[in-house]
């Protein structure tokens, strides 16, 4: 088990090197004039050259990469040429916001998707099953940003039940930073009013974010449940008098969830990269919004670093999933 984890962790390193190299090459090889953009519209050629020198952009690409890569080892993510801020600082601000959103959405998708898929399989080829499969296809067809707008229109603008956007009211002091997750920090400090407020802000973006993974998890769960229900051990359990409820919710569910886990791991990475749209709609101050601003400004240090962080989280999530898979599925663990 430990050896398995260590092996997987070591394998991350070449992936991260490859990832940063690709992002570095793509961002510098393409046309575009980031320095000119950053120096301002009225900058002279000499000023632009000085600006490039200040950030070391006049040196060969591989030297710049070496600097960046060795910096990463020290936790130095470079400096934004646009805002002149340390990228590491920005990441520390924006990453928790994105993670809070992604975890909330994923939790919603898992908590609703797994039972829904189980039920769809139990009611196979009857109306709950048909309804769920049509809604699942509809859900994955729904553009997240359009869903976000609709939610805003109904719940924030017309009904005025929930805030329009942002993470917390501007005039309030946000919960003390322990984890960076406002909901958890508010609970830890006993600030229940703050917790409610954080939840109200989180609700709409999390729903907009969760719909498509919910549908996928549900369909995956349905498929794997149907497959498990065909297994001999289910017939044996039925033949020996176990109730349908016990068989489905205890025995079948456990086997089916382990197959569904893989999808959840893939979706975690997909959601991290996909928060951009939802964050734009809800002005959620997270990595996606940060990356968008940097991309529009062609400010590449933040872009490469955001891709690095997301890639790192994605690979890590998959290792966690593999370990969980072993916990649920004892046979894998011992092999």
């Amino acid at each position: 088990m430990i050896r398995f984890i260590v092996k997987r962790v070591v394998l991350i390193i070449p992936i991260l090197i490859g990832l940063t190299v690709i992002m570095f090459v793509i961002s510098r090889m393409l046309p575009g004039d980031p320095v000119g953009l950053a120096a301002g519209p009225n900058a002279t050629a000499a000023e632009i050259a000085a600006y490039a020198r200040e950030f070391g952009l006049d040196r060969p690409l591989w030297v710049q990469y070496w600097d960046y890569a060795t910096g990463l080892l020290r936790g130095d993510f470079g400096v934004s040429i646009f805002t002149r801020r340390e990228v590491a600082q920005d990441l520390a601000t924006y990453l928790p916001a994105t993670l809070e959103l992604v975890f909330a959405a994923l939790a919603l998708a898992i908590v609703l998707g797994i039972p829904a898929g189980l039920l769809a399989a139990v009611y196979r080829n009857r109306w709950p099953d048909y309804l769920s499969s049509v809604s699942a296809i509809a859900a994955i067809s729904m553009p997240r940003f359009f869903l976000g707008l609709l939610l805003q229109l109904f719940f924030a603008m017309w009904l005025m039940w929930l805030p329009l956007g942002g993470r917390f009211p501007i005039i309030w002091e946000p919960p003390t930073g322990i984890t960076g997750f406002y909901t958890i920090d508010a609970l830890l400090t006993g600030d229940f009013e703050g917790f409610a407020m954080a939840c109200r802000h989180l609700a709409l973006p999390a729903i907009a974010m969760s719909l498509s993974p919910l549908a996928t998890i549900m369909r995956m769960m349905r498929a794997s449940t149907l497959e498990v229900m065909q297994q001999d051990y289910v017939t044996t359990a039925r033949a020996l008098g176990l109730s349908q409820r016990l068989i489905i919710f205890k025995y079948v569910a456990r086997n089916a969830i382990s197959a569904t886990l893989t999808v959840i791991g893939l979706y975690f990475g997909w959601m991290l990269g996909g928060t951009v749209l939802v964050e734009t709609v809800f002005d959620w101050p997270g990595l996606g919004l940060y990356a968008t601003q940097a991309i529009v400004a062609q400010d590449f240090m933040p872009v490469v670093s955001v891709a690095f962080v997301i890639g790192l989280l994605f690979v890590t999530a998959n290792i966690v999933i593999d370990v969980l898979y072993g916990v649920i599925n004892p046979k894998v663990r011992y092999e």
Partner: peptide
């Protein structure tokens, strides 16, 4: 492993 949307955004922004 590279987030597709961010890659596409970066390339599109650079290409104009």
């Amino acid at each position: 492993t590279i987030p597709g949307l961010i890659l596409a955004m970066a390339v599109a922004a650079a290409l104009g």
